[in-house]
Amino acid sequence: MSKGYISIEGLARSFPAPSGSGAATTVFRDLWFAMDKGEFVCVIGHSGCGKTTVLNILAGLDDPSAGVVIVDGKEISGPSLDRAVIFQGHALLPWRSVLGNVAYAVSSKWRGWTKQQVEDHARKYIDVVGLKGSEAKKPAQLSGGMKQRVGIARALSIEPKILLMDEPFSALDALTRGTLQAEARRICVETGQTVFMITHDIDEAIYLADKIVLMTNGPGAQIAEIVVNPLPKERARDSFHKHPLYYALRNHLIDFLVTRSKTFAAEIAAKAAEGRPHDARRPPVILPAGLEKPITTLNGSGPAMAQSA
């Protein structure tokens, strides 16, 4: 497998049985996956498949039971300022102002900076997420969407190599979510940010992602396949669902979540009987059925393209 900018190699995580007796629960096993610099990758799967655990391992907040994660040529161990996390529950420090929260991250990254340098840098990113004028407010004075904007500003302000997002918009109402998705995409495309995002929202994945990683149900979850998003890089939040390829992709993802995520083991067995065994190290990279080839040239070529069955 070609080594990408980020490479997940043979990752597994199991938890001991709660009572101490009985077998350990393996949440997921043998995950292999690589992504390139500047790619936006979404992982979707049912709850319990270990999506968040994968993200926590990438963030360095959790340790894998087996396997490694390599970022920019180095194996990760523990958290790092190279990898910023946008938490599901925004996780702002409530006793700090908007500026204080972002400045805290900035001063953690550049410890030698003066107060003025830190504030200027923090203000720049508060501006990017459109919160100019709210610098002095405390998180409790902000709406849910604004809080998450601060979370995004904080993560971006440390200029990370990768942005890790754990269902960042799931707690927001539909309208706010749509606006924030559009802004997140704009910012990430403009800055060429590499993003790894967890979601259970199919439309969110279609709108944001360059590649969509499908995980089967846990325990013992696997990467079933990696779907290449055929939508053009330039997509508008209000019209992407009218794109001719949208429904093919959406149907493929829904089919996966509704049925194939459960029956994937049988699917593997059937394919193996046909002489096409599933190789966990090279999960199939596919375009949804009916699409001959991607509309745009995708940056970063993964393993050999295969047409979905």
């Binding site: 958290p79 938490f87 996780a91 991250a105």
Partner: peptide
Amino acid sequence: VRKEWLNVARTLEV
């Protein structure tokens, strides 16, 4: 202390 606040500090290598 909320775990997520500690996680913020951890990811910022504080």
